[in-house]
Design a protein around this nucleic acid. Structure first.
Lengths: 334, 334
DNA sequence: CTTTCTGGTGAAAGCGCTTACATTTAGGTT
DNA sequence: AACCTAAATGTAAGCGCTTTCACCAGAAAG
C-alpha cells in the first residue's frame, strides 16, 4: 500500500506538505502542489481514512442506527441520509438495533468505537435516560422518531397521535362505526401514540373503542394477516380496520381476500406510513403520510449544522402527518 | 475519552498487558486479567476501533457495495449479510453504487480507504476488467450477481437465463401465446440473461418473440406502470406479460387495473425475484424465486472462509431459480 | 540597508493501539 | 545452591496520518 511517505519522497517534499495538498487547508505554492499531485497520480495513492481519522480525531462519517436494514420505511430513511451526507462528502455507517435494547446499545457502541463524528438514532427499545446519558458522552446525537424531554432540540419527530387521529377520523367520516385496530407492538411509543389518536377520534364521535377489536401486531405483513384472521374468528362485527402501518394493512388485505371478502366493499382498510408500495396494493391504500425522507433529511441537516458547520440549514423538530386518500375505504351511507 | 493507557495505569500494568486481555490472544495470569477487567469497567473504557485498525491493519469490517440502500431486494441482501457477519463479530459497512460506473468506483474507493478486510460487491455498471484489476489490489473481493471469467471462484450468481426461461415456460404451459415483456434496463446483464431465457422458451414452442411487445423498464414500480400503459396503447394484443422483476409486476398490475382490467382474467402477469411483498399484491404474484438471502449468506461465507479462516464453510457459486406458483396467471383453454 | 512581515515548507510529536523482542519471575531439576 | 525453562509481563517501535512550531526566503516598509 502506498503511503503519504512514498508520495512525499517521490515529490521531493515533506510529509506535512503532502498532507497539506491533500486537505488543501493551508497555502502551498502551485508548483509544489502540482508536483505532489503528480506523485500521487503516479503512485496511485489513496489516503488511508483510518490513519487520517486517528490523527485528526475526525472520521468524516456519521453513524446511523435504525431498527432494520430492510423494509420500505428504513430503506427510505437510509437512502435519504446517505444521499444527503454524500453531497458533503461525508460517509454513513449503518447499524441495526433490531428493536432490542441490548442490541441497540451494542450498535451504539459499535458506532462510537468507529469514532463517528455524530450519530443519527432511530431507536425504540433503549430508555430515554440512556439517550440523555449518551448525549453527554461527547459525540453529538440526533434522535429520529422520538421525543425526549431535555433533548428536544435534538429530536426530529412526527406527531403520531395526530396521525392515528386522522386515520380514525377518515374512517368515521366515511360512515364507519365498527372499527377494528391492528396495532404495532404495544410497548412501542409509536404504537401507543397512534392508538391514542385513534381513541381521541372515536371519543370525538361519542364512540368508545371496543377493546376486543384491538389486536396487537408486529408491524410486519404477517402480523396483518394474523391480526385480520383473529378479528374474523372473534365473530365481532366490524366494517373497517385501521392498521398500525402499511405492511400490516397489506397483510390484512391479503387475509381478508383469502377469507372471501371483496375489498373495499366488505371491508375498509387504512394504513400508516405511506410507504412506496402502498400505491401498488389493491385497492390502493388510504394511509397516513409519514414524511420519512424529509425527516431523515432534517436529521442529517441537524448534523451538518451542528457538527460540520453548515449553518445555513434550518431545523424543524416536529412534522405533521396528513391523510392520503386512495381507494381502500368505502363510503357507507348512514 | 479513556484510552488503553489510562486503563494500564489504573490496573498497574503495561499497555501490552491491557492489549492482551482485550484481545485475549496471549497468556495472562488470571489475577492480572481480573485487575485489568476491573480497571476497564471502572473507567468505562471502550476500545478505539480506528486505532486498533491502524495498528493491526485488520479492521474487522467488510465493505458491502450494493446498488441502492432501499428496495426489498437490496434490503434482504443487507440484512442477510449483516446478520451473518455479526455472528462472528464482524461489522458491515454499506455503500451504494446507484448502478453508475463512476459512483460504483467511488464507493469501492471509499470502502478501500476504510481498510475493509474484504469487499462484497453487487455492482452493475463497472466493467469486468475493473473487477479483475481490483481483485489484484490485495483486498479480497467476492462478486454477487455476476459471472466473471478469471474470477469464477469469487462469483456467486443466479442462473438468470434459466429464470427467464422458467417464467416464460410457465406462461406458455398455461396456454398463453401472446406474451409481452417489460424488461429492466437493457444494458444490465441480468436483464439480458432473463430476456434470453424468455426467448429460449418461446423458441422451444416454435414461437418467435414479437419485438414490439418488448418494453424497456427500470426495475421500479413506475416502470411497470409505464410499461403496461405503453403496451396497452400500442394496440397489440397480448394475454400475458412477463416482468423483469416483481416491482415492475406490481406496477403493471396497478396500471392494468387502472385501465379497467380484471386480474388475472384479462391479463396474466409473472414477476421475478420473489420479493417479500409479492405475496401481498393482488392477485398474489407468480414469480421466479431469487434466493437473495442464501446468496448473500454464501458471499458472506466466502469472506468468512477466505479472510477470517472459518474453513468449515463450503462455497457454492451458482444458484438455481425456481418458479413460485401463485394466482396471477390464468390457465387458458386451448 | 536594516527591520518586519508573511507565505511556504520541514521537523517532529503525537493519535490509541499492536506486537516483536527483551526481561523478569516462579517453578522445577539435578 | 546453581541452573534451566516456560510463563508472565514490560519496552518500545511502529501503523499512516495531522498539526504545532520553527525556520527560511523574499517582499514590503522604514
Amino acid at each position: 500500500m502506498v503511503t503519504i511517505y512514498d508520495v512525499s519522497e517521490r515529490a521531493g517534499v515533506s510529509l506535512a506538505t503532502v498532507s497539506r495538498v491533500m486537505n488543501n487547508n493551508a497555502r502551498v505554492s502551485d508548483k509544489t502542489k502540482a508536483k505532489v499531485l503528480q506523485a500521487m497520480a503516479d503512485l496511485g495513492y489513496r489516503p488511508n481514512a483510518i490513519a487520517k481519522g486517528l490523527a485528526s480525531s475526525r472520521s468524516n462519517s456519521v453513524g446511523v442506527l435504525i431498527s432494520e436494514l430492510h423494509g420500505p420505511f428504513y430503506g427510505m430513511m437510509m437512502s435519504a441520509i446517505e444521499t444527503e451526507l454524500r453531497k458533503h462528502d461525508i460517509h454513513s455507517i449503518f447499524a441495526a438495533g433490531h428493536s432490542d435494547a441490548a442490541k441497540e446499545e451494542d450498535a451504539v457502541n459499535f458506532l462510537l468505537s468507529r469514532r463517528c463524528d455524530a450519530l443519527i438514532l432511530y431507536v425504540e427499545a433503549v430508555s430515554d435516560e440512556f439517550l440523555v446519558e449518551l448525549n453527554k458522552r461527547g459525540t453529538p446525537i440526533v434522535v429520529l422518531g422520538r421525543d425526549i424531554k431535555n433533548l428536544q432540540p435534538q429530536c426530529i419527530n412526527l406527531d403520531n397521535e395526530q396521525g392515528g387521529y386522522l386515520a380514525a377520523k377518515y374512517l368515521l367520516d366515511a360512515g364507519h362505526r365498527d372499527i377494528a385496530y391492528i396495532s404495532g407492538p404495544l410497548w412501542k411509543v409509536d404504537t401507543q401514540d397512534r392508538l391514542a389518536g385513534h381513541r381521541r377520534a372515536l371519543a370525538e364521535h361519542q364512540l368508545t373503542f371496543d377493546e376486543s377489536l384491538l389486536i396487537e401486531g408486529d408491524f410486519q405483513e404477517e402480523g396483518g394477516v394474523d391480526g385480520l384472521n383473529k378479528l374474523l374468528s372473534s365473530g365481532r362485527p366490524f366494517t373497517a380496520v385501521a392498521c398500525g402501518n402499511d405492511e400490516m394493512a397489506a397483510g390484512a388485505m391479503a387475509a381478508a381476500r383469502d377469507a372471501g371478502m371483496t375489498l373495499p366493499d366488505d371491508l375498509s382498510i387504512v394504513g400508516f406510513d405511506n410507504v412506496a408500495y402502498s400505491r401498488f396494493v389493491y385497492p390502493k391504500l388510504c394511509t397516513v403520510n409519514y414524511p420519512v425522507r424529509e425527516m431523515a433529511e432534517m436529521a442529517t441537516h441537524w448534523v451538518l449544522r451542528q457538527v460540520y458547520d453548515h449553518t445555513r440549514f434550518e431545523i424543524e423538530n416536529t412534522f405533521t402527518p396528513v391523510m392520503v386518500e386512495r381507494n381502500s375505504v368505502l363510503r357507507v351511507q348512514k
